[in-house]
């Protein structure tokens, strides 16, 4: 079975149940024209994705760009199967690894070792494989004795290193990555790059969401520019990035006038 992602005409609405819907309605409606709406049952919803379609196959490296709130992370979560679409068709074939937030769902009260073990069990790994992963992660993240202490007391750098090492110790076919992943101090990035590239090369499909244009140009062959939950442009990385960056420049200079 070939690894592939098919998304056809998918829309995703977020119902807003909590909080005072009425006052929320008033404040948000004026601010986000067009993104907020009511569904057929008169519930307040945020239109997170609108009629999104694309198709990825083996070897595709897709970059997602767009301003905050354009729907990039929602799209990644949907591809990971966390949000299930009810409008449109989505098919994701292959084992998926979603690196969406630096904590990777880690439990802060548990020790680093326990978190590694949970991750291994979640991926249905055997005991020896989990032990190997423990050694591998411990060595890369340079946690030393901290591995047996709760993650809560780690420095933020250590949490990132642990999360990164943990995430990159797997070899998924479909890799979904949010930009935090490429954030980190320069020394760490130097060390991390090889490991990350190793994993990315091993993956059949990469979907990367990022604000950093250089990263997208380096890593991706194709770029989708998201705007207000819609696909604004979809094409070869350099072409779309040129227009996207040009658009950003005019938007900024426009504000200055």
């Amino acid at each position: 079975m070939p690894t592939e992602i098919v998304v056809e005409g998918v829309s995703l609405d977020f119902p807003l149940y909590h909080g005072n819907a009425r006052s929320l309605k008033r404040t948000v409606f004026s601010g986000l024209s067009g993104r907020m709406s009511s569904d057929s049952k008169h519930r307040l919803v945020v239109r997170a994705l609108r009629d999104v379609s694309f198709r990825l196959g083996r070897g595709d490296r897709l970059g997602l760009v767009g301003t905050n709130g354009a729907g990039k992370t929602t799209l990644l979560r949907m591809l990971a199967g966390i949000y299930e679409p009810v409008v449109g068709h989505m098919r994701v074939a292959g084992n998926v690894s979603a690196l969406l937030d630096p904590r990777l769902g880690m439990n802060m009260d548990m020790t680093g070792r326990e978190n590694i073990k949970l991750r291994g069990l979640f991926n249905a790994m055997s005991q020896p494989a989990i032990r190997r992963m423990e050694d591998d992660v411990a060595e890369f993240a340079e946690l030393g004795h901290f591995l047996d202490l709760p993650v809560r007391i780690y420095s933020s750098g250590m949490v990132i290193r642990l999360g990164f090492a943990l995430a990159t110790s797997l070899r998924p076919q479909v890799l979904l990555m949010d930009e935090w992943f490429l954030a980190g101090d320069a020394v760490f990035m130097e060390k991390a790059r090889g490991r990350l590239e190793d994993m990315v090369r091993g993956a059949d499909i990469l979907v990367l969401s990022s604000h950093a244009a250089s990263v997208v140009r380096d890593w991706c062959t194709r770029v989708i520019w998201m705007d207000q939950g819609r696909i604004r442009e979809d094409g070869p990385a350099d072409e779309v990035m040129d227009r996207y960056q040009g658009h950003k420049m005019t938007a900024i200079s426009g504000q200055d006038d």
Partner: peptide, 22 residues
């Protein structure tokens, strides 16, 4: 290089969501 090469993550799975949710 790393001991992780055999960590092939989970067995491959297919997520297929169709529009007609019966």
């Amino acid at each position: 290089m790393s001991a992780s090469s055999d960590n092939a993550a989970r067995p491959a799975a297919v997520l297929d969501f169709t529009p007609d949710v019966t």
